[in-house]
């Protein structure tokens, strides 16, 4: 087939392209993925029993905000990375901001608090399971977001995979925080982050193969 014939063929009956198609795709992916994560948590873990008391504590909201900010910033990163030629510009800064803020809080808590309590603040009661449960709950979102990204056109596949993984990790952490009893900044700034980085690293590994187009 000659190139002019290909042009004829592609243009024939090309139809209208909905400008909002990409955002709708991500909205659907996040909606179904979050629902999946919530179901998974309902089945395996359940909501913490003292949730009614926890919502009165400022640190509970700091924890939610930490995950929500990271989710929002990584969603921006995914959206930009899945369109050819879009630059990330200030998005890496937006990703770093909640992490740095949490580390700031952690440093404050560790230096001001009783030295004897430091290990407890860092390890909490659940450090052995927390990162894995965050990663587990992120799995439905991970699959859904990779599906959405595959329908677009990422050109930096490793980075796009990592951003998709981080997004799913942050949503997984958001859902997990309704179960998790830990509320100290050193714990959140390390173990939660580690949990989110597991899907991010998986995404970076899978990206070049799964997202190729």
């Amino acid at each position: 087939m000659k190139t002019v014939d290909l042009v004829d063929m592609l243009a024939a009956g090309a139809g209208v392209v909905e400008p909002s198609a990409t955002t709708r795709r991500y909205a659907a992916a996040l909606g179904w993925g979050t629902l999946g994560a919530a179901l998974l948590m309902g089945l395996l873990l359940g909501v913490r029993r003292d949730l009614g008391i926890a919502v009165l504590l400022p640190m509970f909201w700091v924890k939610l905000a930490f995950a929500a900010f990271l989710a929002a910033a990584s969603l921006l990163a995914v959206l930009r990375l899945s369109r050819p030629g879009r630059r990330l510009s200030w998005v890496p800064g937006a990703l770093a901001a909640p992490v740095l803020a949490m580390w700031g809080l952690a440093a404050f808590a560790l230096t001001r608090g009783d030295p004897a309590l430091r290990a407890g603040m860092f390890f909490g009661d659940t450090w052995t399971s927390c990162p894995f449960l965050v990663a587990l709950l992120s799995a439905p979102v991970f699959a859904a977001v990779l599906w959405a990204t595959r329908g677009l056109a990422p050109t930096r596949l490793r980075l796009a995979g990592a951003a998709a993984g981080l997004l799913s990790g942050a949503v997984g952490a958001l859902v997990y925080s309704l179960h998790c009893p830990e509320l100290t900044a050193p714990f959140l700034g390390f173990w939660y982050l580690l949990g989110m980085l597991i899907p991010a690293a998986t995404g970076a590994l899978l990206g070049p193969r799964v997202l190729r187009w």
């Binding site: 190139t3 290909l6 042009v7 592609l10 090309a14 392209v17 909905e18 400008p19 198609a21 990409t22 899945s82 369109r83 050819p84 030629g85 879009r86 677009l152 056109a153 050109t155 187009w213």
Partner: peptide, 23 residues
């Protein structure tokens, strides 16, 4: 050409066309 056609929904009207095609 085929790729640009299949992925044409990823063009954002606010973005320079050169950047999109070049990428």
């Amino acid at each position: 050409l085929l790729a640009i056609h299949n992925q044409r929904h990823t063009y954002d009207a606010g973005q320079p066309l050169t950047a999109w095609i070049h990428a």
